[in-house]
Computed example of a mutant assay.
Amino acid sequence: MSDQIKFIVDSLNKEPFKKNYNLITFDSLGPMQLLQVLNDVLAEIDPKQDVDIREEMPEQTAKRMLNLLGILKYKPPGNATDMSTFRQGLVIGSKPVIYPVLHWLLQKSNELKKRAYLARFLIKLEVPSEFLQDETVADTNKQDISAMEEEKDQLMKRVERLKKRVETVQNHQRMLKIARQLRVEKEREEFLAQQKQEQKNQVSTESLYSGSQK
């Protein structure tokens, strides 16, 4: 546990958090303060979590955090029957619950940022089964999936409208063909320029090598 706390404290004292904790001051944080620290770390991973938890009901805070932790594929220690204990620990700001979460988040922050970002575009989110057993998380997950499916449908409709709009333009096929030809020519020009530069670099290297041998 002491190594875990030390890692958490060291990480929180660095960018982007720039806290000023030591082992004693961190371990002395009250439940609400500890929950806010957890929320700050979650907000660094997903900016939508950037809220003041004092303005939320405890159940709302737990629901929001559980939903994101599910998306991030966090698995609480223990088995699925401990899920209610884990949820309650989040509500009350329990150290045995929050410390392992902080440790996991801070270890994988860069990877988790990508996962949180990509989750917005996924149609099916792989949420660990432990979290799906929690009704609030399951409901939120269904709502998120429904919203993303609706967004996908709207996007497809916009694409279809754009296609029809392009097709109404006279000679659109000819214009597309010319555009493709221009792109090919531009790519060829860039390739030749790159080849020419590489040859120049090679000649320069050979000249330097020859000069050093004399």
Rank of each mutant, 00 (worst) to 15 (best):
A179R: 07
A179N: 06
D50S: 14
N171V: 01
Q143L: 09
I45S: 07
V127W: 01
T81Q: 08
K114F: 02
K108C: 04
E130W: 01
M57K: 15
L90V: 08
L106G: 09
L112M: 09
P77V: 10
L42V: 13
K113M: 04
L68G: 07
S109G: 00
E130C: 09
K113C: 02
A119D: 04
I98S: 03
Q60V: 14
M65K: 14
R115K: 12
V101I: 15
E167Y: 10
P100G: 09
R180I: 03
R115I: 14
I92D: 06
L66E: 13
K152R: 14
D52Y: 02
G70M: 04
H103K: 11
R165L: 15
A80R: 08
A43N: 10
L66S: 15
P47T: 05
D50K: 14
D134V: 12
R174Y: 04
I45A: 03
E160G: 09
G78M: 07
R64W: 07
F86V: 14
K124E: 15
D139V: 11
I145H: 12
K63C: 11
V91F: 01
A62M: 13
K152A: 07
T168L: 15
R120C: 00
S129M: 10
D153G: 00
V137A: 14
Q49R: 10
I53P: 08
S146P: 03
R161Q: 12
M175C: 05
G89K: 03
Q133A: 03
V101T: 08
R64L: 13
L42M: 15
Q88H: 11
I178G: 00
D139G: 00
D52E: 10
K113A: 03
D52C: 09
K73F: 01
D82E: 13
D50H: 13
L90G: 07
N141G: 00
N67K: 11
S129Q: 15
G93R: 04
G78I: 05
I71Q: 04
A62I: 10
D82V: 00
E111A: 08
D139A: 08
T140C: 04
R161I: 06
G89Q: 05
D82H: 11
L112C: 02
K63I: 09
E126H: 08
A119Y: 02
T140L: 04
V169C: 05
H103W: 07
S94C: 02
P77R: 11
V101E: 02
T140N: 12
E135A: 12
L122N: 15
D144G: 00
Q154A: 09
Y117L: 14
V159L: 14
L69H: 05
Q154Y: 05
G78Y: 05
E59T: 15
M175S: 07
Q60A: 15
R161E: 14
M156Q: 12
A138K: 11
P128H: 02
Q60M: 12
M83Q: 06
L132V: 03
K75Y: 13
L105T: 03
D134R: 03
T61V: 15
G93Y: 01
Q49T: 02
K152I: 10
D153R: 13
R120P: 01
I71G: 04
R115Y: 04
K95M: 08
T85N: 13
R115M: 12
L176V: 09
